[in-house]
C-alpha cells in the first residue's frame, strides 16, 4: 500500500515511546505484585548494588563536590569583592549546592557510572538469553533485576548528594578562609542562608533522580537489540537518557518547589 507507509524514523520514535510506556507498565505491575513475589526481590541484591553504586562512587563524588565548591566560591568571590560583599559567597555557594548542584551532579555521576553499568549488565543478560531463561522459569526480570537496582540507587543517591554537599561546603570554606574570613563567620553565614528545608528538598530530588536514572539504565539494558554493538549502544542510551531525564525532572521540581513556596 504505497502512500500509507510511515517514515521509518517516525516508526522508530513511536516504538521507543510505546516501549517506554510498556516498561512503566511492567514496573507498576511488578510493584503491585511485589507482596506476592517477595522472594524474587532479594535484599542481598539491593545491598550489592548499593555498594557498587554508592560506596564505590564516593571518591569521585567527594572530588567533584570539593572542586565545585572551590571553583564556585573563587569565581563568585571576584565580582562580589568589588561590592565588598564577598562574605555572601557563602550564601550563594551553600544554597546552590544544597538545592541544585549537589543533587544534579550526583545524578549525572550516577548516570555515567551506574546507569551505564545497569544497561550493560542487563543488555549482556539479554544477549545471552539469560532473560529468556528467567522468563521460562516463571521469574519476572523486572522484580528480580530492576526493582533491586532502583531501590539501591533510591537509597544511595541522597547519601551521595549529602557527601557532595559536604565536600562542596568544605571547598568553599577553604577559599573563604583564604580570603581572610574566620570559620565561625562562614558557618554563621551558611546557617543564615540555607535552611534544613533546602537540604531536605535537595535530598528528596536526589532520591527521585536516583530511581529514575536506574530505571532508565535498566530499561536500556532490557531493550538491547541484536548484534555486536547492541550492548554498547544500550549503555550510551542509558547515560544520555539518564542525564536528560535528570535535567527535565530538575526543571519540574523547580516549578513544583516554587508553587509550594519551598
Amino acid at each position: 500500500m504505497p502512500g500509507r507507509r510511515i517514515s521509518p524514523r517516525l516508526a522508530a520514535a513511536f516504538a521507543a515511546a510505546t516501549g517506554g510506556l510498556v516498561f512503566i507498565g511492567a514496573l507498576v505491575t511488578a510493584l503491585v505484585r511485589l507482596p506476592a513475589n517477595r522472594r524474587q526481590f532479594r535484599l542481598s541484591d539491593v545491598a550489592r548494588e548499593a555498594e557498587q553504586a554508592g560506596f564505590r562512587a564516593l571518591p569521585l563524588v567527594l572530588l567533584l563536590g570539593a572542586l565545585i565548591g572551590l571553583i564556585l566560591a573563587f569565581q563568585s568571590a571576584i565580582p562580589m569583592r568589588r561590592f565588598g560583599a564577598d562574605i555572601f559567597v557563602a550564601n550563594l555557594v551553600s544554597v546552590s549546592l544544597l538545592r541544585e548542584l549537589g543533587p544534579l551532579l550526583s545524578a549525572v555521576i550516577l548516570s555515567g557510572r551506574t546507569g551505564s553499568a545497569f544497561a550493560a549488565e542487563l543488555g549482556t543478560m539479554k544477549v545471552n538469553q539469560e532473560l529468556d531463561a528467567l522468563e521460562v522459569m516463571g521469574l519476572d526480570p523486572v522484580t528480580l533485576l530492576v526493582l533491586p537496582r532502583m531501590a539501591a540507587t533510591l537509597l544511595v543517591t541522597p547519601v551521595l548528594t549529602l557527601m557532595m554537599d559536604a565536600a562542596g561546603l568544605i571547598g568553599m570554606t577553604l577559599v573563604m578562609v583564604g580570603f581572610g574570613y574566620s570559620e565561625p563567620a562562614i558557618q554563621a553565614q551558611v546557617q543564615q542562608a540555607a535552611s534544613a528545608a533546602d537540604l531536605a528538598g535537595g535530598l528528596a530530588k536526589a532520591a527521585v533522580f536516583g530511581a529514575v536514572v536506574a530505571a532508565i539504565g535498566c530499561r536500556a539494558g532490557l531493550a538491547t537489540g541484536n548484534g555486536p554493538r547492541a550492548v554498547g549502544l544500550a549503555a550510551t542510551a542509558a547515560v544520555v537518557g539518564g542525564i536528560v531525564a535528570t535535567i527535565l525532572l530538575d526543571g519540574a521540581f523547580a516549578m513544583l518547589f516554587y508553587r509550594l513556596g519551598w
Binding site: 549482556t124 543478560m125 545471552n128 538469553q129 539469560e130 529468556d132 531463561a133 521460562v136 522459569m137 516463571g138
Partner: peptide
C-alpha cells in the same frame, strides 16, 4: 502458561547460564 512453566525445564541452545 504460567502454570505450565512450573512443570517444564528448558535448556537453551546457548546454555543461558546466569553469568
Amino acid at each position: 502458561l504460567a502454570a505450565a512453566r512450573r512443570r517444564f525445564g528448558v535448556m537453551f541452545q546457548s546454555g543461558a547460564l546466569f553469568g
